[in-house]
């Protein structure tokens, strides 16, 4: 798992015991693991002090979102065996000092950035978990449609009609029969988020339910899909912008002769 990540850990700390919880930390807007996104530059431990170094795609990443990710790293990693303290470093960010100082001393966002928000990021985190649910659901709905199911047929599916098995995914419908879906990701990711939001995910529960856990009827499902699609496009705005900004950073880097690069830009990840 993430073999190319710079990890320097003593024998007493298990690499996977760090990377697994770290993989659960998401960029809330992109709805993707910060490890997969390549935001984590290095993982180091000195005795019981664990230091995670993070580099976000832009120098200007909004402080509330940055704070949220840094806070999540600390939360996910607290309690790992033989780790007494977790310290997060933020590279190349305009508010790195305030964020590092705030999070590492356990301050709430509102205390570290007075006037920037009023409920300690909880509602922000919840909002994006919910938006991400719709985005993941839209991906699954698209897969089901591409496999040939009508909206009416999809509305009849239950969770145990979907079978995920080692990278492949198939769905079984009473009349349409067994159909192969592209990748297993969509179903997996959707169900994972559904459980996280506390929505009933028992085997006989309807496959497609709204954010309140209510099934979406056959007649309403198409409109529901259309709305979820707009949510996905909306979330992708940041992804597209971040991607473009990252590309620009890489172009700048390519234009600079190697010997002039400072140590920070050497950490820029390609790809």
């Amino acid at each position: 798992m993430y073999d190319d990540l710079a990890c320097s850990l003593p024998e007493s700390i298990d690499r996977n015991a760090i990377l697994e919880p770290l993989d659960r930390v998401l960029d809330p807007e992109l709805d993707e693991s910060i490890l997969k996104l390549g935001f984590v530059q290095s993982v180091e431990a000195d005795e019981g002090l664990l230091t995670i170094t993070l580099r976000l795609p832009t120098y200007w990443c909004a402080p509330n979102f940055s704070y949220l990710m840094v806070e999540d790293i600390r939360r996910e990693l607290s309690g790992v065996e033989n780790v007494q303290q977790v310290h997060v470093r933020l590279q190349d960010h305009f508010a790195a000092d305030e964020i590092e100082r705030g999070v590492n001393s356990g301050k709430l966002f509102t205390d570290a950035f007075p006037g920037e928000g009023n409920d300690n990021l909880k509602s922000l985190r919840d909002l994006f978990l919910r938006k991400g649910y719709l985005k993941r659901q839209e991906g699954l709905l698209r897969e089901l449609r591409n496999a040939g199911l009508s909206f009416a047929q999809i509305a009849e599916l239950r969770i145990d009609n979907v079978h995920v098995d080692r990278g492949s995914c198939r769905v079984e419908h009473a009349t349409a029969g067994k159909l192969q879906l592209g990748a297993d990701d969509f179903a997996q990711r959707y169900l994972e988020r559904r459980r996280k939001l506390g929505i009933d995910s028992s085997p006989r529960a309807p496959l497609i339910v709204d954010l309140k856990g209510q099934p979406v009827s056959a007649t309403k499902l198409e409109q529901y899909f259309v709305y979820a699609r707009t949510v996905r496009v909306s979330l992708d705005a940041n992804g597209s912008l971040c991607g473009a900004l990252l590309d620009a950073r890489h172009r700048e880097k390519d234009a600079i002769p190697d010997h002039e690069l400072n140590t920070k830009s050497e950490h820029v990840r390609h790809g």
């Binding site: 832009t58 200007w60 912008l241 473009a244 900004l245 590309d247 620009a248 700048e252």
Partner: peptide, 17 residues
């Protein structure tokens, strides 16, 4: 300064070269 540098990132990030 931060404002215009942020604009400039948008400019370089999305403009044709």
């Amino acid at each position: 300064e931060g404002w215009i540098r942020c604009f400039y990132d948008y400019h370089t990030g999305l403009s044709p070269e």
